[in-house]
């Protein structure tokens, strides 16, 4: 894992025009997540948390501002290069998991291997699934897993390429307390190993995290 990898969102704004209305999704938001730290963004629904994560992950071009990942200006890259860069350097976890229904647990975790050259893919996938207590579920399909197990598979997939940055959008939103703890512990472990975690949540207790910022109406609360 790259210890120096970090995410730097610099004065990013995103606006939409919908049905003739001008909507501010995010305005002049800046956050910096250092390698080895775990930052939480808190805020109610519609506050711009997901927009910030998508922009930070290279999936949503901001109208103003820059996003730097590992020193690379994401939106200065061509779309194709940005896609590859994202695959290698940024991991995503979503509330909805987005597991591929016709692939087994092991195959879902190995799925980024379609696009990326990942050294020791099989061993890495098996190791991650073992760490997330899913060794007995390798050949199971997502529909055969519990909600918590599905999220752990999604997390293993996000980590398979050893990204420097992990973006987690409400990863515990659908989970019970036990599974929430498992996921958060896994994210902590990742951060302690040098990763930079930026997690959006609207309800999680935020005691003990390295940094907590609050977002409201698309703006950071002072």
């Amino acid at each position: 894992m790259t210890q120096t990898a970090a995410l730097h969102v610099q004065e990013v704004s995103k606006y939409y025009d919908r049905n003739g209305r001008h909507i501010t999704a995010m305005e002049n938001v800046s956050v910096e997540v250092k390698a080895g730290t775990f930052m939480v963004i808190r805020g109610p629904s519609g506050s711009g948390k997901s927009t910030l994560l998508l922009a930070a992950g290279g999936l949503l071009r901001p109208d103003t501002g820059k996003v730097m990942v590992g020193g690379e200006d994401l939106y200065a890259l061509s779309p194709d290069r940005r896609t590859v860069f994202r695959g290698k350097n940024i991991g995503f976890v979503f509330q909805q998991f987005y597991l591929v229904p016709y692939l087994t647990v092991l195959e879902n975790v190995k799925m980024p291997g379609i696009a990326l050259e990942i050294q020791g893919l099989n061993e890495r996938a098996a190791e991650l699934l073992g760490r997330f207590q899913l060794s007995e579920r390798l050949e199971h399909f997502p529909s055969e897993l519990s909600i918590g197990e599905r999220q752990r598979v999604a997390l293993a997939r996000a980590l398979i390429a050893k990204p420097g940055v992990l973006l987690a959008d409400e990863p515990t939103g659908n989970l019970d307390v036990d599974n929430e703890k498992i996921i958060v512990d896994c994210l902590w472990e990742y951060a302690q190993n040098g990763g930079a975690v930026l997690m959006a949540t609207h309800g999680l207790r935020t005691d003990g995290f390295d940094d907590v910022v609050e977002l409201e109406g698309g703006r950071l609360k002072p």
Binding site: G57, L59, P79, D80, T83, V84, R86, G87, K88, F92, Q96, Y98, V100, P101, M111, P112, I114, A115, L116, R157, A161
Partner: peptide, 15 residues
């Protein structure tokens, strides 16, 4: 959803 996640993990448009 499947396409979106593939794109997210780095699968290109051609593939």
């Amino acid at each position: 959803g499947e396409i979106a996640i593939m794109r997210t993990v780095g699968v290109g448009q051609g593939k």
